[in-house]
Simulated scan of single mutants.
Amino acid sequence: MSMEYQANYISEEIKLSSYEDKFFRSDIIFEHHMLIWFISGETKIIQAEGAYYFKQGDIFLIPRNRLATILNYPKGGQPHKTVVMHLSTSRLRHFYADVDVKPRALKSQQIYFFNNHPLLESCLASLIPYFNMKELPENIAALKITEAITILRTIDKKIDDVLANFEEPGKIDLVSYMEKNFMFNLPLEKFGYLTGRSLSTFKRDFRKAFNNTPQRWLTQKRLELAHYQFVEKKKKPIDVCYETGFENLSHFSHSFKKQYGYAPTELLNKTK
């Protein structure tokens, strides 16, 4: 979907992100932990366990290697604007080299909320003037990231379990993972990586587990979820389209009609 997007960078790890247009959607797997401070606009983040809503003033951390559908909206005439700090594995390894911690394994990594925390807000707000500078003070990005990590560790004593965990995804049960994450529209290579497999191994194991190709199975599962959303939740076609992994409404409507013999609007009219 077309949009007026602008991003100012202090470094590759810190940016001021702004969407001026009506709406932006993306299916994402985060390579790094993302610390985000909301300046204006709204975001809906859909993950396997549920949906999260964020607005002006919110501060949150999204752990790496988590699948998400991101829906960004402007609000009240203001653009969708955020300060985003990437907490990369290399940066965190450097930080924790001097810290004696033994992170515990986490079963799941949810989004962490740090709303209205004065230290964290002050740290992120202090970045704003740097985005307009042509010449930046040396090492300012590294210093600011170190400050943010230090504040996070002060606020949340368990955050080391997230930030100091450098393990890559290992080979996990394919069936349970795909049943939980089928609604995210990602390349098959990414699904392979997240389940600890090469693309060829992923396809082979998938065929063995589901007796189907990944693409056919994914489309069918997404359409079944869409049908449920219409019948049980009475959701609008545009919302269902984006929440079940389809790129656009026309492709979604065409696929839905091909599967069920009627369009989403006809189903909604029947169930009123």
Rank of each mutant, 00 (worst) to 15 (best):
K258L: 06
H94F: 08
V101Q: 10
G50V: 10
Q220S: 11
V84H: 05
V99D: 08
K236E: 11
S40A: 04
F191P: 01
F166K: 07
L127G: 09
R222W: 06
I28F: 08
I140C: 04
H227I: 07
K107Q: 14
V101L: 09
Q215P: 00
F114I: 14
R91F: 14
K233Q: 14
G41I: 02
T150F: 08
L218V: 08
F184L: 05
F113L: 14
F210T: 03
L87M: 12
A209L: 08
L71D: 02
Y112T: 05
I149D: 00
K257P: 02
Q78D: 07
F202G: 02
H80I: 02
Q220M: 13
N248R: 10
V240S: 01
L174R: 00
A263K: 01
P129H: 03
N185Y: 08
A68E: 03
P74W: 02
N72W: 00
F184I: 05
F95I: 12
K157V: 09
R222A: 05
K270S: 07
N116V: 05
K233P: 05
P169W: 05
I140S: 04
Y260A: 04
G50W: 06
R64F: 07
I140E: 03
W217K: 13
P214V: 05
A209Q: 09
Y242W: 09
E12I: 06
S253D: 03
L199E: 11
H254Q: 11
M1C: 13
K158D: 15
Q109K: 15
E4D: 15
L71Q: 08
S88H: 09
P169V: 09
D98F: 11
